[in-house]
Write a protein that binds this DNA or RNA. Structure first.
Lengths: 349, 349
DNA sequence: CTGAAAGCGCTAACAT
DNA sequence: ATGTTAGCGCTTTCAG
């Protein structure tokens, strides 16, 4: 079995057996097109020569189908496995891939300057997760002619997308605090632009946010505020990057100096950071401070956080289905619902 | 820009410009092989025709390199995002992929009968994670001529692998309990075969376990036991499947009837389940019951679990590097170290 | 600096 | 039931 020669190919097998390549092809792809006997001989010869079946790449070139979809993410790849909300969404995507028997290719973001893998990944379509509206990778994917579907930004008409009622959820969260009598409320935000800036985000920055999900959340908070006849511009929106629990801690450390009675965190990870900071400062939650998150991740639930639930798994699965169900591309579903989940991190002011 | 015709190809662009296809190819792959002016014209024409650059599949066929590695896992894909230890390992793999600018394709396990995606995934190599020693997919990958590297089973000589000193770690865990004076100890095990069986695993089953990682762990416990002159076969090894925190709960519910003073759980997820069951039964940990886990996952740390740490990230990264560093395949590294981490879930008997 | 020609390995009409 | 032929789209010697 020493193979000094090149790897066996369909032609090799065909020649060894004195048949034509198409017969060997048929042995693999259309068993009914040849006698059982010949087929058995083909397979036996293939085994003897160490031929493992049609080369997937060549077959893909012929068929134009790779059997995988790609996932593009705005953070380092390892983040896909770090952020609880991302993990849930990915689980949904992965489950759908499994059902459709296609692979899921995580497409890494490369250091600027490197030729983008979005342009070369061997996939039949791409899920764009949490990209800013003007991200170049959207354009590259489009030019390749690949079907794309965005999740958590960008939205139509920029790209077909699975959307979530972020705004409604955020509105409910803010109204909840207002109903409890809170008026001195601060917001902890993740990045509102790709520039790594940190600080108290002015209104212009809030509105120019290219990440649709978070822009909508902020808009939802504001809706509730203005519906109550209050001045949104008086609400401090403290932005931190990079995203994560620590960002929440750091934002809260600054914010708490203002002695707010409540904090709206734009995600549960940030909210957990706020809880950390509150504890470090000796504040009781919800006695001294109410905190509302967003996402309803498992650890938020464990911490008793009041938050806004969204169907993460369904969101991911819907995105994958959009790519996989109808090759042409089905219509995007209506916005998925969000729901306020009241736990023990909020109380009357 | 209405494209009634077929998608533009290299030849299309060449013809539109009256040059040869190879010139267009050079414009993309060897800018130095043609005048800057001609190159600019080629690129402009390409843009005008909506040609997005060389087709990745065709290029792959030519070059024989896909630019991605695959990851194969013995559980449903979504599990990769559920199990904390798997997530950590995957993060390591993903980080290495990112550094090498290659994609990471998660290859789903299909319902039995379906043509296996391991045979057709467009990848340059495969990481086999937690497969049983006799898994068919190892053979399929080999026949394709793909480089493979196993993590957490199978081990050499079955396959090149990144190994961890599971046995040493388990030995330390068991010795820790013995040192504390525990003698009535029970083990909670995840699956010791792929058959879905549950119950008290007899010795034969323990030894035939095709999952190397867990077989080694069990062997490590036994080492310590026998070194202390005790009879391993008197130790109850309670096996549950499928794997997860709930499995730990259910195993512990049965086990605790024997009134052990300590439990060795073969993973932190199982250990957390044991803690749940102990709490439900009104047992204090470590007062009434000591518990030791394995893996040192974040939630284990948060729960104050005494456990065995292993370098998950490094394990995953090393596996990916083995595939990516030297195309030929480097030598596997020596077993990665494990380390007993004593927290507050263990005390003297 | 540019072009012609020969495949990479496979599949699907279309014969026979 | 089996073989012939013509590509899928690209890259790459090798000539000019």
């Amino acid at each position: 079995m020493a193979d000094g020669a090149r790897r066996a190919t369909m032609t090799t097998v065909a020649r060894a057996l004195g048949v034509s390549p198409s017969t060997v092809s048929n042995a693999y792809n259309r068993p009914d097109q040849l006698s059982a006997d010949l087929r058995a001989r083909v397979l036996a010869t293939a085994a003897r020569l160490g031929y493992a079946g049609p080369d997937p790449v060549a077959r893909t070139l012929r068929h134009g189908r790779t059997g995988a979809i790609g996932l593009v993410y705005d953070e380092p790849l390892s983040f896909s496995f770090t952020d609880p909300a991302a993990v849930l969404c990915l689980r949904g995507v992965a489950a759908a891939c499994e059902r459709h028997a296609v692979g899921l290719t995580l497409v890494p973001r490369l250091p600027a300057g490197a030729p983008d893998l979005v342009g070369t990944a061997l996939v039949d379509g791409l899920v764009l997760y949490c990209l800013p509206a003007d991200d170049d990778r959207l354009r590259v994917a489009r030019e390749r002619g690949l079907p794309v579907v965005a999740v958590d930004s960008p939205r139509p008409p920029l790209a077909p997308a699975v959307t979530v009622d972020d705004r409604g959820g955020a509105r409910a969260a803010a109204r909840h605090l207002l109903d409890l009598g809170h008026r001195r409320v601060a917001v902890v935000a993740e990045r509102l632009a790709a520039d790594g800036w940190e600080g108290t985000a002015p209104r212009a920055r809030q509105d120019a946010n290219p990440y649709d999900g978070t822009r909508e959340r902020l808009a939802g908070y504001r809706d509730a505020w203005e519906a109550a006849g209050l001045d949104w511009d008086a609400v401090r929106v403290e932005e931190r990057a990079p995203y994560g629990r620590d960002a929440g801690r750091r934002a809260a450390r600054d914010l708490l100096a203002d002695r707010p009675t409540a904090v709206l965190a734009m995600s549960d990870e940030l909210a957990l950071g706020v809880l950390d900071a509150a504890a470090a400062r000796g504040l009781r939650v919800p006695g001294d401070l109410s905190v509302v998150g967003f996402d309803d991740t498992p650890s938020a639930a464990a911490a008793g956080l009041t938050t806004v639930a969204q169907p993460h798994l369904e969101k991911g699965a819907a995105a994958a289905r959009l790519l996989l169900d109808l090759p042409g591309g089905a219509a995007a579903p209506p916005p998925l619902p969000t729901r306020l989940v009241v736990r023990t991190s909020t109380a009357a002011s």
